[in-house]
Computed example of a mutant assay.
Amino acid sequence: MQLLRKLLFPVSFVYAMVVYIRNYLYDIGVFTSSKFKVKTICVGNLSVGGTGKTPMIEFLVSRLKQYQKVAVLSRGYGRKSKGFVLAKPGVSVETLGDEPFQIFKNFPEIALAVDADRCNGISILEKTIEVDVVLLDDAYQHRKVSCDSYILLTAYSNLYVDDWYMPTGSLRDSKREARRANIIIVTKCPKDLNTAQQQSIVKKLNPREHQNVVFSYLDYSNDLKGDNDIMQLEDVRGKKITLVTGIANPKPLVTYLTENKVQLEHLAFRDHHFFSDKEIALMNTKDMVLTTEKDYVRLKGKVTNLYYIGVTHKFMNKGEQQLLEEIRKH
């Protein structure tokens, strides 16, 4: 796979040029961006995934909904529906897509919609729902919308400054576009990342004067939740379980479980994978299947003895305070 990526370097160079020209045409006004009355916050990255966007959206919803009427707008990647869809009780994961469905399951009191056309989606939300702020999930590269605030995520293990363009690397947007961010969050850091190491990363990212850089790590729950019961992590220590993941980067979860002395067989699938009948039949032969919350919403009711482990972002130093203060400015 690595050899193939290197051989495709000329393709990635052409891709990089196309991305650069597209952004330049937006910068000089040939392509135009739309501004909306409702406040908009973009949460995204420059790569194809694996930075923890969904847990970050959920973190922001949990904080902002205390004093704002919040809506979330997502593309709904992998869904079987078309156009604008507003989530309602009884909606299926196939209609919304796995990540929006997860967010709506956890926050049914907010407005959640999916629409590949972000401008159309925001317009409908403005006209039909009383909302103060719209969180745009995974929309950093969608420049048809001019947002009030931009939150850029980059994973500690694959900083955008060290990456290259698809298909040789995982960048889908120009590194230069990091300049549009109001705040940069380095996600999935080791919990023991010290101040000197953080300063070294900040120096490498070379933020602009207006940009703050904060650091977060993934905090996995000790609860393993199933359809009808909850197990504790210590209950499965020493037992062999089957871990099923359909996410961009399962390595942090695998590391967490192995460090906690959980023996596991890992069935790894691509991000947003919709499981086949054959794959589900295989899972049903296992004694216990543990998965992510995003995968759980697609496997629930199909796999017996199924559990998921939740995850949240926790910030280092005063990162959470800096993030919320940056949002309040806008």
Rank of each mutant, 00 (worst) to 15 (best):
D192E: 15
L193S: 05
T195S: 14
Q198R: 15
Q199Y: 11
S200V: 15
V202P: 12
V202C: 13
K203H: 14
K203Q: 15
K203S: 15
K204R: 12
K204H: 06
L205K: 05
P207H: 03
P207A: 04
E209M: 12
E209A: 15
H210Y: 08
H210P: 04
H210R: 11
Q211N: 02
V214K: 06
F215W: 08
S216E: 01
S216C: 02
Y217E: 01
Y217D: 02
D219H: 12
D223H: 14
D223M: 12
L224E: 07
D227V: 13
D229V: 13
M231L: 14
M231D: 10
Q232Y: 12
Q232W: 09
Q232D: 13
L233Q: 07
L233C: 09
E234S: 14
D235E: 07
V236A: 01
R237D: 01
R237P: 02
G238Y: 00
K239A: 03
K239W: 02
I241G: 02
T242D: 00
T242Y: 01
L243P: 10
L243N: 08
V244F: 03
V244S: 05
T245I: 06
G246E: 01
A248E: 03
N249G: 04
P250L: 05
P250N: 00
K251W: 06
K251Q: 12
K251M: 07
P252S: 00
P252W: 00
L253M: 07
Y256V: 01
Y256L: 00
L257R: 00
E259F: 05
N260C: 03
N260Q: 09
K261W: 01
V262F: 03
V262Y: 00
V262M: 04
Q263G: 06
L264K: 03
E265I: 08
A268G: 11
A268S: 15
F269R: 03
R270S: 14
R270I: 13
D271P: 06
F274N: 15
D277L: 11
D277N: 13
K278G: 11
E279C: 05
I280C: 06
A281P: 05
L282F: 14
M283W: 01
N284L: 05
N284W: 02
T285F: 05
K286L: 02
D287A: 15
M288K: 09
